[in-house]
Design a binder for these strands. Sequence first.
DNA 1: GCAACGTGCAACCAATGGTTGCGCTAGCGC
DNA 2: GCGCTAGCGCAACCATTGGTTGCACGTTGC
Lengths: 116, 116
Amino acid sequence: MSVAAAESVDDDLWSAIGDPTRRRMLDLLLIEGDGTATSLAQRLPVTRQAVAKHLGVLDRAGLVRGTPAGREKRYRVDDAQLARAVAQLSSVGAAWDARLQRIKRIAEAIQRTQQD
Amino acid sequence: MSVAAAESVDDDLWSAIGDPTRRRMLDLLLIEGDGTATSLAQRLPVTRQAVAKHLGVLDRAGLVRGTPAGREKRYRVDDAQLARAVAQLSSVGAAWDARLQRIKRIAEAIQRTQQD
DNA sequence: GCAACGTGCAACCAATGGTTGCGCTAGCGC
DNA sequence: GCGCTAGCGCAACCATTGGTTGCACGTTGC
């Protein structure tokens, strides 16, 4: 397996979900269905402006979409895009897992030959 | 499921594997067995010093261990710790996946009731 | 009409990923 | 033994980014 294969992940997507605050925001949006910068900030240990910036990042990554509604702007998760992100997460995990398994098998094989 | 449950990930571990350069370093170390700051820098688009800093981060996160060997310092992956990291990756993915599934089921249920 | 709420923009600060440059020590060739 | 080279560590510096405060502008409700 090539190195490039494991790093075939979309870097923007990964960096979007790499931030702990943004992960919690996605959690909240999934749980509550939607939310605004202000409503999310109330449930997070950061200011509204910080949340707004994060929403901008998530928006540019396509993970959320915001629609203006009067004086507020409601955001909701783009299911398909988040599913893509989850797939990439597990793909990296699977790649490492496979290599760890292979190393383990090799180690066991060596041990067997030494015990002969 | 609580928000805290999904964020039970060790933040240091996550931020360690959150950086794309560090992920590629882990890939290289897994493939080649071990490596030094210089040897890794040759295969990466960054300088030796940048690699050295990343190795420091990975070391503090417990993902790699370096042992001095003459004039060079060889690093190798800590299998157990990387396995832990992989587990946390998939745990976050699984949490989101579950919520997406639930949303999908609810949407389908609504559609069924509307078609009645 | 006006007070209050929600948003967006700008300036600023700290942390971090990256660079260059320098000095030091361990091995190798002679 | 002596010098040269390879590899490392440290320090200074720069750009990006996650965070803050402050302010100005549109929307809503009384």
